[in-house]
Computed example of a mutant assay.
Amino acid sequence: MDITVEELKERMDNNEALYIIDVREENEYEEFNIGAQLIPLGELPERLDEIKADKDAEIIVHCRSGARSGRAQQYLSSEGYGNVRNLVGGMLAWQAAGY
């Protein structure tokens, strides 16, 4: 299941406790980020132990456009995480929305 930038922004504004993973590279993260935990897609398999969420908890993944986070969503689902949501359009959509 996916999540829109509008829904994520609204939930952040409501101070919901969200678990968000940014799967972009470090230089992209340093350029612009929304405060998510940085685990680049290529490092995800060996860094699963850094995910501080239960396997049934909601995890939101994002990247620049939604492609890498889509792959991260598939990977995490294959590892037993049952509620992984991909941010549609990624940071490009986030910035295009003016957030």
Score class of each variant (00 low, 15 high):
45 P>H: 04
55 K>G: 03
40 P>L: 03
15 N>T: 06
73 Q>V: 13
13 D>C: 00
53 A>H: 05
80 G>M: 04
99 Y>H: 04
78 S>T: 08
7 E>F: 05
90 G>L: 12
9 K>P: 02
33 N>M: 02
87 L>R: 01
98 G>V: 12
65 S>H: 07
36 A>E: 02
10 E>W: 04
8 L>F: 07
77 S>F: 07
55 K>Y: 05
57 A>L: 02
81 Y>C: 07
98 G>P: 11
24 R>Q: 04
25 E>Y: 04
17 A>E: 15
9 K>E: 03
15 N>E: 12
89 G>R: 00
24 R>I: 12
86 N>H: 03
4 T>Y: 03
91 M>I: 10
31 E>H: 11
18 L>G: 07
52 K>S: 13
92 L>G: 00
37 Q>V: 15
10 E>N: 12
36 A>R: 07
49 D>S: 15
67 A>V: 13
96 A>T: 13
92 L>S: 05
93 A>E: 11
92 L>W: 09
31 E>P: 02
18 L>A: 00
50 E>H: 06
90 G>R: 08
91 M>W: 00
15 N>A: 07
67 A>L: 08
14 N>A: 15
20 I>T: 03
14 N>V: 00
60 I>C: 02
70 G>A: 10
13 D>P: 06
3 I>Q: 06
72 A>W: 05
59 I>C: 09
34 I>T: 01
65 S>W: 07
57 A>K: 09
60 I>A: 06
97 A>C: 09
91 M>Q: 06
67 A>S: 14
87 L>P: 02
13 D>I: 00
68 R>Y: 10
53 A>K: 10
33 N>D: 11
88 V>M: 07
16 E>I: 04
35 G>N: 10
23 V>K: 05
19 Y>K: 11
59 I>Q: 08
12 M>N: 01
82 G>R: 14
47 R>T: 08
54 D>E: 15
71 R>K: 13
7 E>Q: 15
77 S>M: 11
25 E>D: 14
62 H>C: 04
5 V>Y: 07
62 H>M: 10
5 V>C: 06
10 E>D: 13
62 H>S: 03
51 I>E: 07
96 A>E: 14
19 Y>C: 01
89 G>V: 07
36 A>S: 14
86 N>I: 10
42 G>F: 12
87 L>W: 00
29 Y>G: 09
68 R>S: 11
43 E>D: 13
77 S>E: 15
15 N>M: 10
5 V>H: 02
37 Q>N: 12
8 L>V: 04
2 D>I: 06
11 R>P: 08
98 G>H: 09
9 K>A: 11
80 G>C: 01
94 W>L: 11
82 G>V: 13
88 V>C: 02
57 A>M: 09
5 V>N: 06
18 L>S: 08
52 K>R: 11
14 N>F: 04
5 V>I: 13
57 A>S: 12
87 L>F: 01
70 G>E: 04
64 R>F: 06
12 M>A: 03
59 I>A: 10
51 I>L: 09
99 Y>M: 06
28 E>T: 14
79 E>D: 01
45 P>R: 12
32 F>E: 15
15 N>R: 10
20 I>H: 05
8 L>T: 04
74 Q>M: 14
95 Q>N: 09
38 L>G: 08
76 L>D: 10
43 E>A: 13
96 A>D: 15
32 F>Q: 15
62 H>K: 02
27 N>H: 12
